[in-house]
Simulated scan of single mutants.
Amino acid sequence: MSLQYIFLFGRNPKLSYLELASYFSARHISFKPFFMEQRSALLEISDTIDAKTIVNELAGTVKIAEVLFSCKDSELKEKIEAASLYDGTSNKIIYFVEVINASPSLREHFKRHFKMIGIKALHKSLAPHTIAKTKQEYVDFILLRQGNLYYVAKTLACADPFKFKERDVSRPVIEPKIMSSIRLSRMLVNLAGLLPRATILDPFCGIGTVLQEAMLMGFDVKGVELDESRVKNCIENLKWLKESYQLKESFDVFHGDATRLSEYFAKESIDAIVTEPELGPLLKKRPSEAEAKTTIARLQALYEKFFKEASVVLKPFGRIVIVIPRFRTENFKLFDVDIEKILSEADFKIHNPTKGTAIEMSIPQIYKEEWHRIERQIYIFEKYLRH
């Protein structure tokens, strides 16, 4: 029996949906997307899902809720009052209703429902890491309006954003100037669309953020880094990770050059490459046109060499998930790497797991926070065989 679910996303909903689609595709979870509304998406899924595992493994999904019913505006009050919203035994609970694209005043319907069935219910939002500590039962709902229909869903699982921060600050070695975001790194790993036990390579591995997230997802990893001190730091971080989380996954990190991968790895031996490569100099302000042109020319040459080497070591249909920068200058002109030129010289094409579906995302997806001086473009490429 197919069920409908609402997925609530974080700061980057489009990228988060792309991550979700890649994750489901890898695990052969059949789903039918209906629509995306603000930070949420409605999906119909034919398989039974483990919502807690999914929300813990995805970086961009905040909540997963099972749809209890959908109805028109005129039916909403009656439907909520008649629904089975709480099946526990306590007569005192805390609850929260996440309202999307609808009036917050509709929460009053839930308040009346609990009053009618004799439950003292306090409406309050609790952070996921505090739910286990509360002495009262906590129930979470999503009320979503799309067009003339309302969807009422009961939350099955919430993400704990503190798990990323805790892992970030607990590592033996932290290098803020070159560190990839842990949250983005997990998203990049999931965008590769692989099942655990595959081998992921990061040829610009730095201190190992992408590699650690891949290991936590069950992948064996390999890392290449040009800076010898960072190689040592990466190994130290991954040893700490393996011991702290009791991981069985293997890692191999060594000093090397991302433009010489075929010297280190056998032909067609790597399942996927996931990386945030060199993105240019650390910027304190928007660059001038001359600075942007110089940086782009250098990165273009680096990326062209890297992609040619990647096509040698990747297995057929292996993927590259990569961050490619673009620069907006002080006079707001955009300067971008020439991806078409790179693809014309290497055996790759853009891969889009949402292509042709009701919710189709574009690739690349832009990942940019307000404080970022560069715009990160997230690409997924797939190696193809020339005839």
Rank of each mutant, 00 (worst) to 15 (best):
I93T: 09
S2D: 08
L241G: 04
V67H: 02
V312M: 09
I350G: 12
S2T: 06
K120R: 15
V67E: 00
Y86W: 09
P325S: 09
G60L: 01
E375D: 12
S181Q: 08
F35K: 00
N91T: 14
D336S: 15
R298V: 11
P128L: 09
E360D: 11
T134R: 14
V274S: 03
F317M: 04
A102C: 09
N12Y: 08
E98K: 07
A132S: 14
L261D: 01
S125D: 13
K52V: 14
K154T: 04
F34V: 02
K333L: 12
P353E: 01
I350L: 11
E340C: 05
D87Q: 14
L314N: 05
Y151Q: 00
A346K: 00
E98W: 04
S70D: 11
I94F: 10
E175R: 02
F110I: 02
F251T: 00
E289K: 15
E278K: 05
C234E: 01
H28M: 09
A258M: 03
K154D: 08
A83M: 04
S25G: 07
R183F: 10
M217D: 02
A102G: 07
S30F: 14
Y138H: 11
V231G: 05
L314G: 02
L247Q: 10
P176E: 11
H351K: 06
V337Y: 09
Q377C: 15
L149A: 09
V99F: 13
F307M: 02
A59E: 01
P287D: 06
E75A: 15
K284Q: 14
K285F: 15
M187S: 11
K239I: 12
G10E: 06
I142N: 00
I93Q: 04
K315Y: 09
P196S: 07
H255F: 12
E263Y: 15
P172K: 12
F327Q: 00
S74G: 13
E243P: 06
S288V: 04
E263I: 09
F335D: 00
N56P: 01
K72A: 11
V169Q: 10
I200H: 04
A127V: 10
S30N: 12
R107V: 12
L314Q: 00
K383D: 02
D257C: 09
K32H: 11
I235D: 07
T354R: 07
A290S: 07
K14W: 03
E330Y: 15
N56F: 13
L385D: 15
V313H: 03
S46E: 10
Y151S: 01
I178W: 10
L194M: 09
H113C: 08
H351R: 11
S244W: 03
E75G: 10
N233F: 13
K315H: 07
E268T: 14
P161V: 12
R112M: 11
L122D: 14
S262E: 08
L302N: 05
S262D: 05
L85I: 06
K72G: 12
C158N: 03
P172Q: 06
K341F: 14
A266R: 15
D257W: 00
P316Q: 01
